[in-house]
Design a protein around this nucleic acid. Structure first.
Lengths: 352, 352
DNA sequence: CTGTTAGCGCCTTCAA
DNA sequence: TTGAAGGCGCTAACAG
């Protein structure tokens, strides 16, 4: 019942009264042209029989799968969006994207996923950062599968053929600048250490901003994990010159902070200003509206796929590409940094 | 460079000084046992050569892929979580889950995804609802691939072998009951029609709640899309007896409403009470904390995978299963329905 | 317990 | 333009 005798090209050939080679030609948009007549016969036969090409057999025989493996740390928020866009782009280019989540940043699961993907003989790999070390990665990947990194900073050349990185660092740097321009006299970065490299970039950007624009102003860094928001906010308000400016790891963290200010009756943006990252649903719909950095998903996805595919076809030629592509974010300013006249809900730029 | 001569079992056999059949036996956890000695030799040889089994070849030859296809409307929020959990469960059972998003509820993309999955000869399919009609689905799936539905209500028996449905209807019904118990004198369901069947279930539940517990009380239904929250809330407050109770399609919609009340200075929960669904990050961290329904992801994922796999092995025997499994949600009450004494941030039950 | 031998379904020269 | 034949890498009987 469950496997009712697959229809193969043999059946189609028979039905159409031609050879299997002909069927194969006709069905795979001919590298070789056939007579109108044959084409029609074959297509009709295939249609009639409900023929469906067997991907495995095809892949096996031509030693190419048209499959790309993706490993991301999860499927929520940014990662989910990214995966979805990559999937679309891959499809557009005739590839299938196999999505794997490595559940947080678990190196063990990463390993396993990589292994599975390799066994499937994917044509290429796209990985979002990678929790496991350079060494492990090298040994796994150096078997020849091209690898493009997303948000992978400073990886050795011999492992990845390139990276497409979001400009988190400069976004954070600019956040600092913005907050200072808006009059903040104390700044704080609320980090999320469990996000590894991503967090590191933001941290770097924050520090750089302070160094460049801070003029020796006071700043702090706190980690979102296990952070008691109320205690934190109270301490910030009491111990430091106002207004306070906060760069949040992302919009989720920012939401917690915003809610804290509401709870404690801290005036936003007068006493405190917040900027997030991601320009999530949250940023647009929270109250007050959250200033945040918008991510060009489509662009990043295209870059990544392009880079991989060009490597796949051009063998070497693609070396010319700069190894790392930097994808800049766009600031969407809302009420948490800027009291607009017309009403608390207006945007400087339209959100998402 | 890119495809450095795959290592095959032939190479391993050679290196180990045995036949390829032996290698195959040893490597695929023996249906047939071999001598300790041979096992060691083969494993070492494989290790030394960096052998990696070719999934396609294996699948082709045994006519079984150990791959399960998943089609969900997206990868954000609930869907992403679900996909992730399904992936884990599938892995635990030795299967690979191929995740496809059909970008909203686009029937065209769905078709294409289904087609691709079939061409890969997946052993089974798990689909979250399905935007395309019964007919299309039937014609695509009736070729023999077992299909389990998730949140697919009322599908014809001949298409799917069963469904694992979240109890949205009764959750909403209970939401109504709760709101009435908390003293609401007007109720409203804020829907999200673009979510099709899911929304329908919630609507049904809401209506049923009103019929059962409403005692002829006034109620309304509004759709979240293009909804001007402020106008809506103002109208609700002015035109109807307070307090107002709102059942939101999900926590995202609820967030918009909560922010609206903050903007307009409506007292929560005194003048208005809100309950969401999903128990998202938002629910836990919004201010005031949002009463919501928690989803047993792991359980639902297990049920779905179990159902599919049992169908795969037991051929017919599994018929005994009830066709539809109902997965109940759990209420997490927070401040939007219940002014707790100790402080606005306490929970009746611990969130997520 | 190990080796031999057919395929699995398709693609790809190479002739015809 | 079409057909015949040899593999792709692995598994599954069946012999030894």
């Amino acid at each position: 019942m469950s496997k009712p005798k697959q229809v193969t090209i043999v059946d189609v050939a028979e039905e159409a009264g031609v050879s299997i080679a002909t069927v194969s030609n006709v069905l795979n948009r001919g590298g070789i042209r056939s007579s109108k007549e044959t084409i029609r016969k074959v297509e009709q036969a295939a249609e009639r029989l409900g023929y469906r090409r067997n991907t495995m057999a095809a892949g096996l025989s031509r030693n190419k799968t048209y499959e790309i493996g993706l490993i991301v740390p999860g499927l929520n928020g940014y990662y989910g969006q990214l995966a979805e866009h990559l999937q679309v782009e891959a499809h557009n280019r005739g590839y299938h994207l196999s999505v794997f989540s490595s559940g947080g940043f678990d190196p063990e699961i990463e390993r396993r996923n990589l292994e599975v993907l390799q066994q499937r003989r994917v044509d290429g790999l796209i990985c979002h950062g990678l929790a496991m070390g350079f060494e492990s990665t090298r040994s796994i990947v150096n078997s020849g599968t091209p690898l493009v990194l997303i948000n992978g900073w400073d990886w050795p050349e011999d492992i990845a053929i390139g990276a497409v990185n979001l400009g988190f660092a400069s976004a954070c740097e600019q956040s600092v600048k913005l907050l200072l321009e808006r009059g903040c006299r104390t700044l704080c970065y609320v980090s999320s250490k469990r996000s590894k490299a991503i967090d590191e970039q933001r941290h770097i950007g924050f520090i750089r901003g302070m160094e460049r624009y801070g003029n020796g102003i006071n700043y702090e860094v706190a980690d979102a994990k296990d952070l008691d928001v109320d205690v934190f906010l109270r301490k910030m308000r009491e111990g430091h010159p106002a207004p306070i400016g906060i760069v949040a790891f992302d919009d989720h963290v920012a939401l917690r902070l915003i809610c804290g200010t509401l709870r404690l009756g801290i005036e936003l943006p007068e006493e405190m200003k917040i900027v997030g990252i991601n320009n999530d649903y949250i940023a647009e719909h929270s109250y007050p509206g959250l200033t945040s950095w918008d991510i060009p998903y489509t662009f990043q996805a295209q870059m990544a796929i392009d880079k991989l595919l060009s490597k796949l076809s051009n063998q070497q030629a693609a070396e010319q590409d700069e190894r790392e592509i930097n994808v800049p974010l766009t600031l969407i300013e809302r009420h948490t940094t800027n009291a607009l006249k017309g009403g608390v809900n207006e945007h400087v730029a339209k959100g998402n």
